[in-house]
Structures are given as structure tokens and as C-alpha cells.
């Protein structure tokens, strides 16, 4: 599987994503500087996490207007895969590739901990290696992960099975107590209409080897490998 990573000033989780893609897919991703207006021919483009432009204006707002994001839109329109993690998810919503917005966490705190996710739609290139309803551990590290969308938009997401992951308890319970940041319907990750763009706040790339305390994050990358093979 050929992949590329977009790099912005202020992104700091790109190294982890490069390591995960290299280890799991066996191929190092190509690195694309944000000013580039064309992407290499790859199957998957990843926008990693961090704090592009110091979260000035709104998280992801400035990055979403970069030339490279226009190229990401073309890549997505061609039906190829796009993954945005954390700040990458914020950039995808700000660019209009995904609906809704990511707001300040409900309790205003920066959250850095491991949570549980429930795989909801497992019929996508990103999630096919999960069992439907499977509960996995995944780290989160964000200040603005509170997913918001209006009622009409939310209904559209839910009706079309476009919620990829929801925050839940270790037992799979989805409720207010297992919602770390106030996201509507405990939403942790969503898909675009075609199912080839996924944005998620949690960091699967940070749970891929025993030294990380688990390997649940590998399932997402294995899904992508299977999908592209």
C-alpha cells in the first residue's frame, strides 16, 4: 500500500504516523509539505495530529486552506483514501471534506488518556478488519475533540451508517459517562458519503506494539492493507 503524509508547521504527531505506516504496511509514506499543490500517486493520504498553526483562529482552520488540502480534495473526489487523525480530523471538517465541527472539550480540559471505542460501521476500507460492535482501546490527546453537528446533519450521518467509531466503556456501554469530550452521540470518528474519507479524534497509531501497552490500533491499518491489496 502506497501512502503519503501531509506535513504542516505545528503538526507533531506525524512521526508516530510515519512509524505506524512504515511498520504495518512495510512501506514508508511519502512526505508532502503543506505548500505542495500536487500529491504523489498513492492509495492513502494521511493528515496526522498536532497543532497546525498553533490552533490559531480555530483548530485546523488555517491548515484547511493550504494548497495541499485542495490536492487532498481531488484525491478524495477520485475515490482514493483519506485518513485524518486528531488535528487531521479537525482539518477535514474545516475543509468541508467531512461535515460538522470539533469544538472545545465539554470540561475544557486537554485530555490525554486511553479510552475505548466501539467499531460501528465495519464495511469500510478503514474498518473492515474489526468485528461489528468490537470494543478496542485507543489513546486520545486533544483539547478540541467535542464533535458537533446540527440535528439534520446528525440524522444524515446516523441513517447512512457514517459513524465509524463511538466512545464507549470497556464493556461497550455508550453513554454520557463514557463520553470523554461531549461529542454528540459519543461520536469519535465519521466517514464521508462515499466512505473513502475517515476522520477520527483518537490515535490508533499510538497503540500498535506491546511497548505501547497494546496493539488494538493495528486493526485500522490492517483494514487499509486488506482494502488496498
Amino acid at each position: 500500500m502506497k501512502s503519503a503524509i501531509i506535513q504542516f508547521p505545528g503538526l507533531n504527531r506525524d512521526r508516530d504516523m510515519i512509524a505506524a505506516l512504515t511498520k504495518i504496511t512495510g512501506q514508508a509514506p511519502e512526505l508532502v509539505w503543506h505548500r505542495e499543490s500536487a500529491l504523489p500517486e498513492v492509495d492513502l493520504v494521511v493528515i496526522p495530529g498536532g497543532f497546525s498553526y498553533g490552533d490559531y483562529l480555530r483548530a485546523g482552520a488555517i491548515a484547511a486552506r493550504a494548497p495541499s488540502i485542495k490536492a487532498v480534495k481531488k484525491h478524495a473526489e477520485a475515490g482514493k483514501l483519506v485518513l485524518g487523525v486528531c488535528n487531521g480530523f479537525q482539518i477535514l471538517t474545516e475543509s468541508g471534506l467531512l461535515p460538522g465541527a470539533l469544538m472545545r472539550n465539554r470540561d475544557l480540559k486537554f485530555l490525554c488518556k486511553t479510552v475505548h471505542l466501539k467499531a460501528e460501521n465495519t464495511d469500510t476500507p478503514f474498518t473492515r478488519a474489526y468485528a461489528r460492535g468490537q470494543v478496542v482501546a485507543c489513546p486520545i490527546a486533544h483539547h478540541d475533540g467535542n464533535y458537533f453537528i446540527d440535528e439534520v446533519g446528525l440524522k444524515r450521518l446516523e441513517d447512512k451508517d457514517r459513524v465509524a467509531f463511538r466512545y464507549c466503556g470497556a464493556d461497550g456501554a455508550v453513554n454520557d459517562d463514557t463520553n470523554p469530550n461531549g461529542s454528540v452521540n459519543n461520536i469519535a470518528g465519521i466517514l464521508n458519503e462515499k466512505g473513502n474519507v475517515l476522520g477520527m479524534m483518537p490515535h490508533p497509531e499510538n497503540l500498535i506494539e506491546p511497548a505501547h501497552g497494546g496493539q488494538d490500533g493495528r486493526i485500522l491499518f490492517q483494514s487499509l492493507l486488506e482494502a488496498v491489496a
Binding site: L57, A61, R65, T93, E94, P99, A101, M103, F148, D150
Partner: peptide, 9 residues
């Protein structure tokens, strides 16, 4: 419309 406001919110 394009930058200063996020009209979703």
C-alpha cells in the same frame, strides 16, 4: 464565509 467564521457553528 471562507475563513473568519465556521458557519457550521
Amino acid at each position: 464565509e471562507q475563513l473568519l467564521a465556521n458557519t457550521v457553528i
